[in-house]
Amino acid sequence: MIPIEAVIGFGLIIFTIGLAGVLVRKNLVIMLMSLELLLNGVNIILAGLGRHLNSPRGSIFALFVIINAVSEAAVGFALVLAYFRHRKSYDTDSLNDLKG
């Protein structure tokens, strides 16, 4: 059997990697990819807990997280496309004004 601490630890590691990625990287697209890693880490913990507590709620919650991840990725990319057409660059350091 799989110890629940191992699953939570593994999910936390992925979450940490995603968090570090969002903070360190400047390329907008790679930041969004690290965001997906965050959501993946959370899903792993949810699935592990669902199995440990013998309930389907873990999978249901994770399903809704995936749906939200899809929505956020789609809208995020629409914004990235619109921004890139305007600015011709994706350095987030130059993403510092609300004008335009």
């Binding site: 593994f10 899903n43 699935a47 592990g48 199995r51 999978s59």
Partner: peptide, 14 residues
């Protein structure tokens, strides 16, 4: 790989 982990955790639908 995460999907593989889900299969190992018997969350097959996920």
């Amino acid at each position: 790989a995460t999907a593989g982990v889900f299969f190992a955790l018997q969350a097959e639908y996920l």
